[in-house]
Nucleic acid binder design. Structure first.
Lengths: 342, 342
DNA sequence: CTGTTAGCGCTTTCAT
DNA sequence: ATGAAAGCGCTAACAG
């Protein structure tokens, strides 16, 4: 049914050379005369030859495909990450196979110990639910780079921002705009990602630096990093009648939900409560009030992950267990912009 | 470096049977005794055998991979579409390779006439910039399903909502809430996707039905379906001093931008101007005011596209050029909720 | 119901 | 600088 079947051999015949020569041209092997090269390239163009990746992959053990596993690509943060990873991979001549885990431990485990396509050369994985035991259980079937910090003992490469410092920066900023009772939303039940824990550490450390004591009743847990949970968390805080004037939310989505909840209770942002999120999703630039956020450098995160993977691919005994830290910065917007300090 | 090399043959040896038998078990071929089947499955489990997709693909010509090409996965609408396509494909045992075109004609053409991985069995493509000529130029290298309506003469399968009817529904609703001068934002310069044209037709038809005349000065063109362009479009409208009391925006992102622009000019939504968008992105449920929108059934859209592709894959001479229409519905929210009719 | 075997298109020694 | 040929792991046609 299809034209198919423009093989290396067809090109060779058309150009009147051997298969090897065509292969050399395709791979930019130096040992080909200029004249030969152009002649072969012409044949390739005329016949519309495109290499068969399966055959190449079977022979070389490399497919040029990498996997990307995230909870869900429609989550604004992971959508950004996915877009950036695809771009970065493309830069390296790699294509990306995207999988969704929905943060389900079983599916995360599956991704990891791959029933899934054996075809990917490597995997970039953002785990949020799989237990350290599963993560460490067996060596991954392919080179693996984790996105985001994770509770784990074993040797896995990972790339993330410095979540402790990031949270600390958020708290410092809240203190600077006059907050004294800073609640935190995002201590996460049932998650095995270290993100929440580390940000919580940063929060406490930030408070300590400012000479403020930590108050467990200001630390609200959530089931998910979603808008709904952000809103619910605020309900809890308000219901508990603990006073607070600042809010550090572990994702922008939580922050957005929290602001909705605050507004609902007639609590003004930033007037009564100043709010800081994490991630710098697009909506934070446009909601009312616009959202102050701790922004990781997602482009760099993606590029670093891809680069690290490529290194592991190219240099077999690259050590694992390294951590790449990508920079973050505080983006100040209206949700923390007060006319005066207190 | 890696364990590698658990081949079909290794399983066969371990189980003391022939490769064919193992292959039969793997493929659930009926002609295998129950005892044999369990024995082989045990060996597979023990050895941790996973089929080599490259080899299979080389042999059968099928990889179990499909491509998905969208402008950008971080666009909220395409993020949703991507998530849904990945889910739908997964249901059919297919994995998805995601590519981004950024709406660049050259990259769209490239996706189509595939320099790209020859490895995908088929392609789901959401073109917005490629010209009909390029689209028709050559038969696609693999089975192709287009998402969204498109200006094209040739025989390509496509799946989309009925954009004319959808726009008409939007206009009808605006008329019902009392709008008489309904502007439209989204007539798109430089796009070859038919979406904008068809929605414009629907708009005019809706006006005609309501006994309202079309007014070209109420039809604003945009360069992109982005928030910024929505805002700019409103600036233009306001600057032109043409009165309007309703706004049909061709995407939610445009609508969000437009509402920002309106607010900026002290024009109240829905009091002074009622606003309707398209797509039903998440933010529309949470912005203030919440956004009335024409929502395509994205799950069904994705599932239909995947199913259609699978059919083309399985039945070689499936006719092309068919259109699958997915349902849409109007989701009424605050941006069109007025206390009274006019 | 099970075993043998050719070959998918490519890369890559090894000769020349 | 170029050619000939083996074989990557799998599937399916054929034989038993």
């Amino acid at each position: 049914m299809m034209a198919m079947a423009v093989r290396l051999r067809d090109v060779a015949e058309h150009a009147g050379v051997s298969v090897k020569t065509v292969s050399n041209v395709v791979h930019d092997h130096p040992a080909v005369s200029r004249a030969m090269r152009t002649r072969v390239q012409e044949s390739i163009a005329v016949l519309g030859y495109v290499p068969n990746i399966s055959a190449r992959s079977l022979r070389t053990g490399r497919s040029g495909l990498i996997g990307l596993a995230v909870p869900r690509v429609s989550d604004p943060y992971f959508a950004q990450v996915s877009a950036a990873v695809i771009d970065a991979a493309s830069t390296c001549g790699l294509s990306v196979l995207v999988e969704q885990t929905d943060g389900d431990p079983a599916r995360e485990a599956e991704v990891l110990h791959g029933r899934r396509p054996t075809i990917v050369d490597g995997l970039i994985f953002s785990p949020i639910a799989v237990t350290p035991e599963v993560l460490d259980e067996a060596p991954p079937t392919v080179p693996l780079v984790l996105i985001g910090e994770h509770l784990m003992s074993a040797e896995r490469s990972r790339v993330a921002m410095d979540n402790v410092a990031a949270a600390e920066d958020g708290v410092r900023h809240l203190v600077e705009v006059g907050c004294r009772r800073i609640a935190v939303i995002g201590a996460k039940r049932g998650s095995t990602a270290a993100t929440a824990e580390l940000r919580l550490v940063g929060h406490r450390r930030g408070l300590a630096r400012a000479g403020l004591g930590a108050d467990p009743s200001l630390e609200v847990e959530v089931a998910e990093f979603s808008r709904e949970c952000g809103c619910t968390a605020v309900e809890q805080l308000v219901a508990s009648r603990v006073p607070f004037d600042g809010l550090l939310c572990f994702t922008d989505l939580l922050a957005l939900g929290a602001m909705e909840g605050l507004t609902h209770h007639g609590i003004r942002v930033p007037g009564d409560v100043a709010v800081v999120g994490f991630d710098d999703i697009d909506e934070g630039r446009h909601c009312a009030p616009t959202l102050t956020t701790v922004a990781p450098d997602v482009q760099l995160l993606a590029m670093s992950a891809v680069m690290r993977l490529v290194t592991q691919l190219d240099v077999p005994k690259t050590p694992r267990g390294d951590s790449i830290v990508v920079p973050h910065r505080l983006v100040v917007r209206d949700s923390t912009r007060r006319s005066r300090g207190t």
